[in-house]
Amino acid sequence: MNLNKLERLFVAAILALVGEAAWADYHLNIPVGPTETSRVIYDFHMYAIWVCVGIAVVVFGVMFYSIINHRKSKHPVPAKFHENLKLEVVWTIIPVLILIGLAVPSTKALIEIEDTSGAEMDIKVTGYQWKWHYEYPKEGIAFFSSLDEASNRARQLGSGIDPKTVPNYLLNVDHPLVVPVNTKIRFLITAADVIHAWWVPAFGWKKDAIPGFVNAAWVEIEKPGIYRGQCAELCGRDHGYMPIVVKAVTKEEYQAWVAEQKQKLAGGRAAAQGWNLQVAMERGREAYNTHCASCHQADGSGIPGTFPALAGSPVATDDVDAMIEIVLEGKGAMPAFGSDENISDADLAAVITYVRNAFGNDTGDVVTPEDIADAR
């Protein structure tokens, strides 16, 4: 429905009259998330807003008083004076007091926000083009978190999928970050290629992820739930497809999740011992969607002029050793996955096997983790 300016003002006035419920989808202020840091930021924000309101009332009050009471019709002969010492002292002292009144609480808030001491657990966050890697050092768990397959397919031209039908389009991932509530968590944030920025609005802060440098931040989530964010730094062509999903659960649920992840890790190792085409294809499909689909597309068609197609490609159907070398050493815009300690030999073997036997590339080759280890 198209409305002109007058009609839009009329609608806004009606919404204002019918009450707060009508404004449920309109956010005119910063949100207050389920964390102490977000409340600290919001409280200082509102304090500063009211200071500004007070200044505006005084300044505009004096201005309108002067306009009304010192207009030409009332005082045809203007007063002639200058250099009022008392006035100059007053309008110097008052701004200084205002600045002090803002500086003290803002400094206190910044100190509290940046204080990561006393953390109960650490999570290392590493930004890649265009996914996140999460590592729990104490638990021994690490995984990549990438744009979910439904969003990844819908974003591609010619997919035939209406993005409106995809839940949380471009704001969902295949593997969310799982954390316990009521636990002070320290995030150690860095990047492996270019500058990224880890940002979840509900937490009240964002931190740059800079290659070769580690930024620290903390959060203590008070309510279970799903909290979504995105990379807030222009990190490259697929910057818009790098979401963040944090799943906050109770401490009991978190411990159960940790046990489940360790069981999966053990199961993956066992599966590697009984390596065959079926095992490699199942594992390779997931690894491909995590590490490769954003560039080479989910169907292996690639992006003309940017990323080559893998379907029917000589790279994927000819010499298997040459393909292993490309995956390990990288080529062009493709990173060297062999130098990434967070991608296992089993995952690399699986994804190479998958590519050589998917998209019509029916080579029958089965690459094993031992083949990758020997080629490193």
Results as ranks from 00 to 15, higher is better:
A316Y: 07
V258G: 03
W275K: 07
V18G: 10
T126K: 10
W218N: 12
Q255N: 14
V245D: 02
D340T: 11
P31W: 05
H291R: 08
M242E: 15
Q129I: 09
A216I: 03
I67E: 07
K80I: 11
D43A: 15
M242L: 10
F44C: 12
I41K: 12
F143Y: 13
L85H: 11
I49A: 14
D319E: 12
S313A: 15
G240V: 13
A271T: 01
A256L: 07
Y136A: 03
H133D: 04
L234I: 12
E260D: 14
G140T: 05
L99T: 09
I326G: 01
V366R: 09
A16S: 14
I113K: 09
W275T: 09
G240E: 13
T37K: 12
V18P: 01
D174I: 00
E135F: 01
I189Y: 03
P314R: 08
P308D: 03
E260Q: 14
E286N: 02
D365N: 15
T126S: 04
W218F: 06
W205A: 08
T116A: 05
G54F: 02
D321C: 00
L3M: 15
K86E: 06
A142L: 02
W91I: 10
L102D: 02
F359M: 07
T126Q: 06
L310Y: 11
H45K: 12
I161M: 04
F64W: 11
E83N: 14
T37I: 15
F203L: 14
Y134T: 00
G225K: 05
G360K: 09
N276W: 00
G364A: 05
C235F: 03
D345F: 06
P76V: 08
G274Q: 13
A350I: 04
L328D: 05
A358H: 12
T250N: 11
T290W: 00
Q255E: 15
L102F: 05
I324L: 09
K247A: 02
G332I: 08
A358F: 03
Q273L: 13
L157M: 08
V315C: 00
C235V: 02
Y227F: 11
R269Q: 14
D115Q: 09
G364D: 09
S339Q: 14
A309M: 09
P95K: 09
D162L: 06
P201G: 09
L97D: 12
I41M: 13
V57S: 01
E341F: 07
E253W: 02
I324W: 03
N152D: 15
D318P: 00
K80R: 13
I141S: 03
R285T: 04
A266T: 10
Y136R: 05
E83S: 11
I303F: 02
R186Q: 13
N172I: 00
E220M: 11
V200Y: 01
L188C: 05
M46P: 00
N361G: 06
S313T: 04
A154Y: 00
A209N: 02
M334W: 07
L9I: 10
F359V: 02
G236C: 06
Y136M: 04
D122H: 10
Q261F: 01
Y354C: 06
A256H: 13
E149D: 12
V18S: 13
A349G: 15
I55R: 10
